[in-house]
């Protein structure tokens, strides 16, 4: 049982980070039908801002990272995505791919390609013993912070005028505009929220790994795409569940697969994505009637 509890906490913790990433990606996709590769760099840049400002204390670093990425997300929307808005989806896709590449290599230009160590909150890496199970505090903190953030995001989307407008825009963007909802405002707000979620994912991820490098966010974003596909593209609860599911599957494959197959566990996850796309394009968590409008 001990191994199971440990694996479960591991899986929920990493799944939490995936869920935050997937939600950030899913928000933008839902409204703009844009798969935002640059979400990877929103995450990476948040980590770099923390690295540069952590000397002033964690609260300052947290605020600086959130503010920095918020501005970055809004600028990306304004400068890169707005000019191609309304173009066909493949143009949007390639634009975000190019923006991601630009930001990533700007980081290489400034900081070099080598990883740097970053210990955000050293006290959190201690494990605690609960009923004979050793659990790293950071995993519990990650889960708690994610639950809080998801609850806050959920409340924002359900209780505030802007949140309801965002959900309406995600369901039918043109109809929302026909009812007078201002496209630029909703999209900017979605990018802002997406940036905040990226910051949270970055800090929790780096607190676990202790390493910052220009390709840090890439892995997370790829998993995030996978999670949104698994959860059903355009569905926000689906994205969160998809993120958790991918975390669970990855960790339990690691534990359960025979040793010589373990390194390939991510290949299995990506294979599962292709299968979901072909067999259940509406995602795993939605009824077949809820197919994505094309």
């Amino acid at each position: 049982m001990t191994w199971f509890v440990q694996a479960l906490v591991d899986a929920t913790s990493i799944g939490s980070i995936y869920a935050l990433t997937a939600l950030g990606i899913g928000l933008i996709f839902g409204i703009m039908r844009l798969i935002n590769f640059a979400h990877a760099e929103f995450i990476t840049i948040a980590a770099y801002v923390v690295m540069l400002t952590i000397a002033f204390g964690f609260p300052v670093a947290l605020f600086a990272a959130a503010a920095g990425v918020l501005i970055l997300a809004l600028l990306s929307e304004r400068l890169a995505f707005r000019p191609v808005r309304g173009a066909d989806p493949s143009t949007l896709l390639i634009t975000s791919f190019a923006l991601s590449y630009l930001l990533q290599n700007t980081l290489v230009l400034i900081f070099g390609a080598r990883p740097s160590g970053l210990n955000i909150l050293p006290e959190l890496s201690q494990p605690i013993l609960i009923g004979g199970v050793r659990l790293p505090i950071i995993h519990l903190v990650t889960i708690a912070v994610t639950v809080l953030l998801l609850a806050a995001t959920g409340a924002f989307l359900r209780k505030t005028r802007m949140g309801i407008e965002m959900r309406a825009a995600a369901a039918d963007f043109e109809m929302a505009r026909l009812l007078g909802i201002r496209a630029n405002r909703v999209i900017a707000a979605a990018f802002g929220l997406s940036g905040v979620l990226a910051t949270a994912a970055a800090i929790l991820y780096v607190a676990q790994t202790g390493v910052v490098e220009p390709r840090l966010g890439l892995h997370l974003a790829l998993i995030g795409f996978v999670a949104t596909v698994v959860g059903g593209m355009g569905s926000l609860p689906g994205a969160v569940l998809g993120g958790l599911a991918v975390g669970m599957v990855t960790v339990f494959l690691q534990v359960l697969l025979p040793a010589d197959l373990r390194p390939y566990r991510e290949a299995f996850v990506y294979l599962a994505v292709i299968l979901v796309l072909v067999l259940r394009p509406q995602g795993l968590f939605r009824p077949a009637s809820a197919r994505e409008r094309v």
Binding site: I164, M175, A176, L179, S235
Partner: peptide, 21 residues
Amino acid sequence: ALVPEGRRIFDGLTVQENLLV
């Protein structure tokens, strides 16, 4: 104001939320 063909009610929103939009 337009009441479009097919009604285009927002999926995932409650009746009240549709009105709020």
